[in-house]
Design a protein around this nucleic acid. Structure first.
Length: 443
RNA sequence: CGGGGCGUAGCUCAGCCCGGUAGAGCAUCAGCUUUGGGAGCUGAGGGUCGUUGGUUCGAAUCCAGCCGCCCCGACCA
């Protein structure tokens, strides 16, 4: 993509409304623009990141056996009356009336709708288990939206819903999501820590929040150091097998958010704990028959008996992750995208656009990279070098290739790794050979 | 929902206290000079001063209502 043709409005100055790093950087790097309080438009660069995160979430959900569907954003109030939540949900639910005076709502979540679908279509124990998910925009009318997309009112969320015959099967469904989440966040370049969460009136231990570690995170967390050494991507996972041992490896260490951490009651001595900060990006929850009983989701069992389904729901804040990743990975100059979610793998800076030698080499390199399918953003603008470098640092592409009059004479290209700042000088062929490997690595 | 703050050019802001008909820097456009970390000079375009009403000969400025946005708290993927 040529920068001269790309819609990428970057800002040199910080918009006044942005308080935290990710919000500032998302505005400055031209990822989003605010439409109204807590509601954002996604510009091309931000949209690319969102899609890449979505793709990883989707791939890991599919791998675990969940099936993707797509439910609407607008739901009927009648459905929510059946679960009793229409009145319980309060002001956070955005209520809408259509032209026929029917009461509708913009869905804050989808338990009612999915349970209704399953109740209508699944009748036999032979049809279980099932895990259905979708990635869809939700709306919760937060009193005070803040932190950009981290706490917006409209947000993109992956939510999965599992349906099983009994608790034992439901626990397996839960474990599958637990492991899928570990893998998902690891692939996103994040250190995610599952922490036991409150289960409310249902009780039990089947609810975990996934907190990713970021120095600027909103909540304080306490955890055992050993958790940091666990590597989810090294796991050989067979989702058909009992995943209990895998889950146990992550849950045997202590980890709690500030609200739940009581130093006096902690099972682990204080000197074994480290305190850091984090951001909640996922939540998994087993809730039994809470919705299935009210919505009539039941199947006929082997003996002809009627069995109410055991359910769980599993959320990942997809749009929030864009902000969360930035919180976990940035410096004073800008964003530092993990390769797995970067909007482009390579930025190409032509230091002296208009110079015949520089232009020729840059075009040759740009063409070569495109032919091999590498995603490259070529800054061909007639700007000063400083501005181009500053913009590249700001938008945070993993690699920046620089062509300037100094090296172009001898065909030398400088390669910089954004994360470390390490620079290497290479010839055109060497760069293309390197990029080939890069392409293979991220395919 | 309690408490506080702010709405002036695309962005960051000054002007408001003390009313006299709107400014700076950056950005944009044109030209020249520049070119390895957000250059310089010259010129140009761009604002019903959030909105409605009131006070006044006269309102960005004073008063009131409304709308929007932000911050702290409570709440939350």
């Amino acid at each position: 993509m040529r920068r001269t043709a790309y819609f990428l409005p970057t800002l040199k100055e910080t918009p006044a409304e942005a308080q935290i790093a990710s919000h500032r950087l998302m505005l400055r790097a031209g990822l989003v623009r605010q439409a109204s309080a807590g509601i954002y438009s996604w510009l091309p660069l931000g949209n690319r990141v969102l899609k890449r995160i979505e793709a990883i979430v989707r791939a890991e959900q599919d791998k675990s056996g969940a099936q993707e569907i797509l439910m609407p954003t607008i739901q009927s109030a009648e459905l929510w009356r059946r679960s009793g939540r229409y009145d319980d949900y309060g002001q956070e639910m955005l209520r809408i009336t259509d032209r026929h005076e029917r009461e509708m709502l913009y869905g804050p979540t989808n338990e009612e709708l999915i349970t209704d679908i399953v109740a209508a279509e699944i009748h036999s124990y032979k049809d279980l288990p099932k895990n259905l998910y979708h990635i869809q925009w939700k709306f919760r009318d937060e009193v005070r939206p803040r932190f950009g997309v981290m706490r917006g009112r409209e947000f993109l969320m992956k939510d999965a819903y599992s349906f099983d015959l009994d608790f034992r099967a439901a626990r397996h469904a839960y474990n599958k999501m637990f492991v899928a989440y570990l893998r998902t966040f690891a692939r996103l370049g994040l250190k995610a820590i599952p922490m036991q969460a409150a289960t409310g009136p249902i009780g039990g231990d089947l609810s975990h929040e996934f907190i990713i570690l970021a120095d600027t995170g909103e909540s304080h967390v306490h955890l055992e150091r050993e958790l940091l050494d666990l590597d989810a991507l090294a796991l050989e996972v067979d989702y058909a097998q009992d995943l209990g041992p895998v889950v146990e490896r992550w849950t045997r260490y202590y980890a709690a958010t500030d609200e739940k951490h009581a130093p006096a009651k902690s099972p682990v001595p204080a000197d074994k704990l480290i305190e850091t900060r984090g951001i909640e990006v996922g939540h998994i929850f087993y809730f039994g028959t809470k919705y299935s009983a009210k919505m009539g989701a039941a199947v006929t069992g082997p003996g002809g008996e009627r069995i109410t389904l055991e359910m769980g729901s599993y959320g990942i804040g997809v749009s929030r992750l864009v902000g969360a990743i930035i919180e976990a990975s940035h410096d004073d100059a800008g964003i530092i995208w993990p390769e797995s979610v970067a909007p482009f793998q390579i930025g190409l800076v032509n230091v002296k656009s208009g110079d015949a030698v520089c232009d020729a080499l840059a075009e040759q390199l740009y063409g070569g990279l495109r032919r091999m399918g590498v995603e490259v953003l070529y800054d061909d603008r007639d700007e000063r070098a400083g501005g181009k470098f500053a913009d590249m640092d700001l938008i945070g592409l993993p690699w920046v290739l620089t062509i300037g009059p100094r090296g172009a004479k001898t065909g030398t290209i400088e390669r910089k790794y954004r994360r470390s700042g390490e620079r290497t000088e290479l010839g055109l062929d060497a760069v293309l050979a390197w990029a080939q490997g890069l392409n293979g690595a991220c395919a």
